[in-house]
Design a protein around this nucleic acid. Structure first.
Length: 743
DNA sequence: AGCACGCCGACT
DNA sequence: GTCGGCGTGCTC
């Protein structure tokens, strides 16, 4: 290895790219990715620091112009270089360019003009400056004159943004600084996103027996130097957050830091306030509503050691702490922890890697753990603690499952069953609140029978087929296709179009049936603006509406004590999703929705409407029985070889030239076959779920194998093959482990 | 960002 | 001509 790729440590957009340097004799073998090096830069060859992002034998810059690395940066390794090494790992593991990986791991550097803490002040008395202004005007030093006039106009102080507006360049300022006319001062003032919003009360609730047991168990192992991943399985309202906070405070007491990941949608004032009340200013929050600058400030605050706890969504995983003691992923089953952009990383996996590097414990918390996590806990690979009782007087709601096929037989074709209608009527009379939940998510073209409830499934992959514009039903994994039948293949009924209700229709129907009811609707359309999400929730929480209609976003982490009825309008919608996780997702959504009823002192009720009342994910969700669900689900995964039993790798190809795309896909399949990997299951190539997007055609190939490392090896092999072939230039390829959504 | 280069007006 | 401010462009 003769050359290194370096990102220089100067924050300027124009320099935010890779520069190559030669490794001199004496440093051979001593330089690796993630290290900091000293390099000569610019015409004056001034020495600056840079981060090594890769080592290579082939330079892509004229060799005669490449300068040698001057030395290594010694001393403590800063957090950033750990993150760069992490980016390098992500690049290898998930498949991406180094730049893509770096962009996900490091925050966007601020544009120079938009956020400047630097300012220029007059270093001489006002009269002297006025005198000087006359002098420079006389000498026709226009830039200096502009600066002096500007300073005099603004009480002797100019921000560098104002200076830039006056077209004053740095060379002018530096010249005048040398002459002692002005001084440049830089004041670092970080924005604190909730300064003054909360108060630190130091409140510490006493732990229940179960909570204490979990904390002590994890802490005992921590004290013994055992660092691993734990599953904290606890029903909604069982107080997982108290366990997190206790562990965090112990870790802080040791001088270490903590990262708490929460799905963006559940990241509310309520959650943040609890952490703030306990840890005060040492907590910070990242969320998508922060401006670019505010987010960058949080990054800097963490780096400067101003905070100990960072709460945020997936991206908070990359907070530049130097010594993490504990990492927490709350609601670990949420799809939000998988990135939808390259590198398509899984935050739970990356957290485990980062935790290992820092010697931190990793806690995965959920009421309905993902099948992957659950399996590892059951196999003993993860520590496992359960919180089974709800805190306070809250009791689990009474659940009834309504068979919509019967409603149809009895002539009720409306969205609501008689049972749900009478329950809603009852709540309106009692002035209690109702939530109506529609669990649709990314569903397109699903087909199911309204008589027997069955969907039409792929004979090879056992997932629901989806309806395409050309009238065919297709499998998103293997491409299997049949024409859309006129009648249901299992019962012959002609009612086989899907349930087409949207939240707007439900809202309209509620208005029609209960004109006196005050209704709020919350879905993607009504929460576009910045504050609307919080507004709707707090309006409902304050009792300004009787009924809240919405999609999944209404069931995540909100306590409404006056809600005593939850209606799940069509529980099976998410069952018809055309991927192997449909049943799991349905169980999770239903369990969460049911758990929303009766969070206060009043008893709650949930009504689940469905065309498939016998399906195990609906049955088990109605009983809130996770174990029973898991036992059923793992059988299906075993039978079909889906994760976590086998590992799965999606390969997504896209390109504007269809013929070329097809031949490349075939070539890829051939390379995989030629590798002769034992136990490998190859599916496809097939049209992607979205076969055309932005003028590009899209194809998918899936591979399944018991061992992820084998898939990783094949991925690497393919990357090498592609690099060595020249006709791949305008075909784009992406890799995705255990995909969540169809490409 | 920070440095050098080269343009252009002012002064000996 | 030469001096020096000031804008421009490049940096492996």
């Amino acid at each position: 290895m003769e050359f290194v790729n370096v990102i220089v440590d100067i924050s300027h957009e124009k320099l935010d790219r890779i520069f190559q340097y030669r490794i001199p004799e004496e440093l051979q073998g001593k330089i690796s990715t993630g290290m900091q090096v000293q390099v000569p830069f610019g015409m004056g060859n001034r020495t600056i620091k840079g981060y090594v992002t890769g080592v290579t034998d082939v330079p892509d810059y004229p060799v005669e112009k490449i300068k040698p690395v001057t030395g290594l940066v010694d001393g403590a390794v800063p957090a950033e270089s750990e993150l760069i090494a992490l980016a390098a790992w992500m690049k290898e593991f998930y498949g991406s360019t180094m730049n893509q990986a770096l962009k996900t791991v490091l925050p966007v550097k601020q544009e120079v003009s938009s956020r400047q803490e630097k300012c220029i002040v007059l270093a001489i008395p006002r009269e002297e400056a006025e005198q000087l202004l006359k002098e420079v005007l006389h000498k026709n030093f226009r830039a200096k004159a502009r600066l002096l006039a500007g300073l005099l106009d603004h009480d002797g102080k100019l921000s560098s943004k104002e200076a830039a507006d006056l077209k004053i360049t740095s060379s002018v300022i530096q010249g005048m600084e040398r002459d002692g006319v002005v001084r440049q001062i830089s004041r670092v003032q970080y924005r604190n996103p909730f300064a003054g919003k909360f108060e630190q009360t130091g409140i510490q609730r006493t732990l229940t027996e179960e909570q204490k047991n979990a904390v002590d168990g994890i802490w005992d192992e921590y004290a013994q130097g055992i660092r691993k991943t734990y599953l904290l399985e606890g029903v909604t309202g069982s107080g997982k957050t108290e366990v997190y906070m206790e562990l965090i405070s112990r870790v802080i007491a040791e001088g270490k830091q903590a990262i708490v990941l929460i799905p963006e949608i559940a990241l509310t004032f309520q959650t943040v306030r609890r952490f703030y009340e306990r840890f005060g200013d040492r907590v910070s929050v990242m969320h998508s509503r922060l401006s670019e600058g505010e987010r960058y400030d949080q990054f800097l605050r963490a780096k400067a050691g101003e905070i100990d706890v960072m709460i945020g969504p997936r991206s908070a995983l990359f907070t530049p702490f130097s010594q993490i003691g504990v990492m927490i992923i709350d609601e670990e089953h949420e799809g939000a922890y998988k990135s939808e952009t390259v590198p398509r990383y899984d935050a739970r996996e990356v957290a485990a890697v980062r935790a290992k590097k820092h010697g931190a414990s990793l806690i995965l918390g959920s009421a309905t753990p993902s099948v992957e996590t659950s399996r590892r806990a059951r196999e003993g690979k993860f520590g496992w603690y359960r919180l089974t009782s709800r805190i306070g007087q809250a009791i689990l709601p009474e659940v009834s499952v309504v068979d919509l096929r019967e409603e149809l037989r009895d002539g009720n074709r409306s969205i609501f069953s008689r049972r749900l209608l009478s329950a809603m009527d009852d709540r309106l009379k009692k002035r209690q609140q109702t939530m109506l939940f529609l669990n649709r998510r990314g569903l397109s073209g699903f087909v199911s029978c309204r008589s027997c409830g069955k969907s039409i499934r792929c004979p090879h992959c056992d997932v629901t087929l989806s309806l395409h514009k050309d009238g065919s039903l297709r499998c998103h994994y293997c491409g299997y296709r049949i024409p859309m039948p006129k009648n249901c293949p299992s019962c012959g009924s002609p009612y086989i179009s899907g349930f087409r209700a949207g939240t707007q229709q439900i809202e309209r129907e509620v208005h029609r049936l209960f004109p006196q009811a005050r209704v709020l609707r919350m879905d993607y359309d009504t929460t576009r603006t910045r504050e609307s999400y919080e507004q709707i929730l707090s309006a409902f929480g304050n009792g300004q509406a009787d009924i809240l209609v919405g999609t999944q976003m209404i069931v995540k982490g909100h306590d409404f004590p006056d809600v005593t009825l939850v209606g799940i309008v069509a529980a099976d919608i998410s069952l018809y999703a055309s991927d192997y996780r449909a049943a799991e997702r349905t169980f999770q959504l239903l369990t969460q929705a049911v758990g929303r009823a009766g969070r206060g002192s009043k008893a709650g009720e949930a009504v689940i409407q469905t065309y498939m009342p016998e399906h195990y994910s609906i049955q088990t969700a109605a009983k809130q029985d996770y174990d029973a669900f898991y036992e059923q689900e793992i059988l299906y995964r075993e039978l079909m070889g889906y994760p976590p039993v086998d590992e799965m790798l999606g390969i997504y190809l896209s390109g504007k030239d269809l013929e070329k795309l097809e031949s490349c896909a075939e070539q890829l399949v051939e390379w995989i076959r030629n590798a002769h990997v034992e136990g490998l299951c190859l599916i496809g190539p097939a049209d992607a779920a979205l076969a055309r997007k932005n003028d590009s055609y899209r194809k998918v190939i899936y591979m399944k194998h018991e061992k992820k490392i084998i898939l990783l090896k094949i991925k690497k092999l393919l990357e090498q093959q592609i690099a060595g072939t020249d006709n791949w230039n305008d075909i784009f390829i992406q890799f995705d482990y255990n995909p969540l959504q169809a490409y």
